[in-house]
Amino acid sequence: MTDEARLADFEARIARGEKIEPGDWMPERYRSQLIRLIQQHANSELMGALPEGQWIPYAPGFKRKMALIAKVQDEVGHAQLLYRAAETLGKPRHEMIEELINGSSKYSNVFNYPCDTWADIAMVGWLIDGAAIVNQTIMQTGSYGPYGRALRRITYEEAFHLKQGYDLVVTLITGTSAQRAMCQEAFSRWWWPTMMFFGPPDKQSVHTEVLQRWGIKPKTNDEQRQIWLQKFVPKILELGLEIPDTALRRDAESGEWHITQPDWNEFFRVINGDGPMNRERLALRRLIYDEGSWLRRALEPHLALPKAA
């Protein structure tokens, strides 16, 4: 079969809704785009474990402490699952982690913002996990089998995180005046990074067209953002939180939310390494990697992973 015929066959399979599996023929660009995407997603889970993980020692009370450990543990488990999904496309995990710590592979911008208060943990758990669920629910309908299956399992667990995040927000916003103030302050800060979470508006996004045709990214950034707004804005208003976008309004006819665009220059600045926490987060991840090097060396002969006795 010629490459053209293979490509036609490949696109026809995707059009029919079939899943592409690891051994199947695929265009190199499909493979490289998927690796880039899954790797970034895995990186995001791993980097997302840092801001939340750093709050574990301070979590107030058994319930919060144990729930936060369980949550961060899930995130690390998601990273593991996703790196494995990317490995099915031929790139080993250590190479991906090395690219993460040397800065050549990206991760979600939201983790380059600080979590200075306990209420930030509530916001990450509610707003950001909520955004991740929107994104992952869409992505799991994508064309690559192993990624979709990993995402289904991940989304299932994220639903617990969202519940937990919401419970935290409700506890704080119905709590003492200091707790309410802390909650509103954190919300106001997280609003804009949340608006940026789904990426730039479609007309500015460089990757979207081919990703959609090949079923790698079934919905656009703007469509995903809109789904999030539909889900979250009513709940935010119901809780009495004040949204820092004074121009926010709902179009009576289409039902769509219109927002003030966040500062996309800031978005590109952060993605290129110049956000408030980029250096610190990557330095920490690098330190962990360096300090663990003896362990990886010692385990190398066992990487076939013999089961515990």
Binding site: L50, I56, Q73, E75, V76, Y83, L284, I288, G292
Partner: peptide, 27 residues
């Protein structure tokens, strides 16, 4: 509490997860 100091910061993903499990058990 000490075991959970590995949560998110483990030397390899597998042990990050293992120490998080033990932390939850001990707590």
């Amino acid at each position: 509490h000490r075991d959970a100091e590995w949560t998110g910061l483990g030397p390899i993903l597998e042990e990050d997860i293992a120490f998080s499990s033990m932390a939850q058990d001990e707590l």
